[in-house]
Structure formats: structure tokens, C-alpha cells
Simulated scan of single mutants.
Amino acid sequence: MIDSLTINEVVRRTGLTSRALRFYEARGLLSPLRTGSGRRVYSAAQIERIHQIVTLKKAGLSLSQIGRLFDNKPLDLAHLLRGQLAVLSAEADEIAMARNNLETALSRIDSGEPLDAATLCSLVKDGEENMTQENWKQVIDRYYTPEEQAHWLENAAPILPEFSSDKYLEQWKELSGRIEAALPMPADSEQALAFVREWFALLEPFSKVATPEMWEGTAKLYQSMPEWEGQIDPGFSSNVWQFISQATTAARAAGHDIGPLPAWMS
């Protein structure tokens, strides 16, 4: 039975870092006791609380949401869990598809058939998609904390299927290609304004669900695009992003309607 553990002992038992434990404490999720010398001591109840935090994070809850749950404050838990289930369902479908392709290939090999071009192409395509997802994850992990990612997924779950579709990416590439072909152009020109309106019309699914934190975080991600450009393809270049940013600033300063924006931005 655990009476009390030091922070180093908790680190060994849970696999968490001491930094994470202190961060949870700073967020009000943990309240370890202190010895006379000021060292943290964790009771059995605190250890149980740590396990609860880890479990709830795996379920997709952010730290702020976990805090509200612990404090018995209002929280639309059903909406949050449905969003997380939607994300997991999409991932499960992708895994099932890749698994089916592998099983088909092995079945043909086991029966003495050569691996045909169509099956090989299917496997290569799935491999490329998995690599793209992994590259996106590496970039996202650089700019968003796990809590911020969970918050993003919670709010964006309804649009993820559309947002991640090949058709939607092709629409961005088509618009980006026309902008690239028209550059250079004045950021305050009528042509630039027309491109800005097209941009925000295409962005409307995101604008409908984006919170201020999501909007600001995404802007920071793309402002840093030169650092990761080439690793993943968002459908447009950093050159196009910089131009659209300048043209948007010019259009809003002039009082122009630039298209659909988040309700809180109006």
C-alpha cells in the first residue's frame, strides 16, 4: 500500500517526467504535500489522480477540460467524446484499408501468384499516405502541445473528413497555382482582393468551427512555414501564404468584405 511517494518515485512508477508533474500542479490538477524542507510528497489519492489525468488525456480531453471535470463544473462531455470517436473511427478505417491490402498481397504470394502492379501500387499509395500523416504529426508536435492538439481535434472533428480529403487539397492547389501565376501584384489591388475572397470561401469549413486559440495557432504554424516547407504539402507555398496574409491585412484595413470569417471575429 502506498502511504506517500517522492516526486522521483512517482516518475519511476508512472513514466511521467517531473516537469509534467509540476505542470499539472501549476494547473491545479495535483496538490502534493510538502515536507519541512519543501520536497513534494504524493499520497495514494494523488497517485490515483495522476492515473486519472493520464487516462483522460488519452481519451482526448485537454487539461482545462480535465480540471473542469475534477471540479464538477459544466462540460459537454458527450460532444467531446463524440469528436474523439470520430477521429478514432477515421484512423481505424485507414488501418483497416491498409491491412486489407497487405492481406490481399500475402494471399496472392501464398498461392504462388506474382505480386501484380495494381496491388503493389495500392500498397505504395497507402505507404505514402501513412508517411504524409507521420510528417504532419512531426510538424504539428513542434507547434502545438498535446493539450492544444486535443482541443483542436475536439472542435474540428466535424470537418476532418472534408478537410483531409484529396478533393479539398486539390482545390487549394488550384487556387494557389493561380495566385503564384499572378504574382507579383499589389496587395491592395482588386485582383488581390478577389483572391482573398476565394481563399476565405475555401477556408469556410474551418472558420465555422475555429476558436480564437485555433485561429491564432494555425496562423503561427503557417507563419513558420519556411521552417517545414517541403516536409509536407498543405496545398500552397509559403510565398502564397505571405501574399494572402498581406492582401488580407490590406483588405480589412480598407473595410472590404473578405468572405466568411469566424462568428467571434465579426
Score class of each variant (00 low, 15 high):
S107K: 13
G83L: 10
S266D: 10
P262T: 09
Y168N: 08
M97V: 07
E148A: 14
P146C: 11
D116E: 01
L29N: 00
R197F: 05
K220N: 06
I258Y: 02
L221R: 05
L175H: 04
A150Q: 03
Y143W: 12
R19M: 02
L106K: 13
R12P: 07
M1E: 14
V10F: 02
S245V: 12
P146Y: 07
A187Y: 05
H79S: 15
P184Y: 09
Q138K: 11
P32L: 02
L160H: 01
D257A: 01
S266M: 10
L169I: 07
S37L: 10
S224K: 04
A157I: 06
T132R: 14
L30S: 01
A254H: 06
H51L: 14
E198L: 03
E213S: 09
I47R: 10
Q171K: 11
R68Q: 11
L169K: 15
N155F: 11
L16K: 07
L63G: 00
F200P: 08
R178H: 12
Q191T: 15
A92F: 02
V196W: 02
A219S: 14
I53V: 15
A86G: 15
W241L: 01
T249V: 07
S189A: 00
A90N: 09
A253T: 13
Q65C: 01
Q52G: 08
W215M: 12
S107T: 14
R19N: 00
A253E: 15
C121V: 04
L61H: 01
S207Y: 04
S111W: 02
I140N: 03
E170H: 09
L183Y: 06
A59L: 15
L221I: 01
R99T: 09
L16T: 08
E103T: 13
N239Q: 15
G235H: 00
F70T: 00
K58D: 14
N135C: 13
D116Q: 04
P158M: 10
I109P: 00
A117P: 01
A59E: 09
I232A: 12
L21P: 05
I232K: 10
L203D: 13
K173L: 06
A192V: 02
R40F: 09
M131R: 15
Y42G: 02
V196P: 03
I179G: 12
T35M: 04
R108K: 14
G127F: 09
K220S: 05
G36L: 08
I140F: 05
K57L: 13
S164W: 09
I95C: 06
G28I: 05
T35I: 06
A194H: 14
D110Q: 11
A187R: 03
I7Y: 00
I179F: 01
Y144M: 10
A254N: 12
Q52K: 13
T55Y: 12
P32G: 04
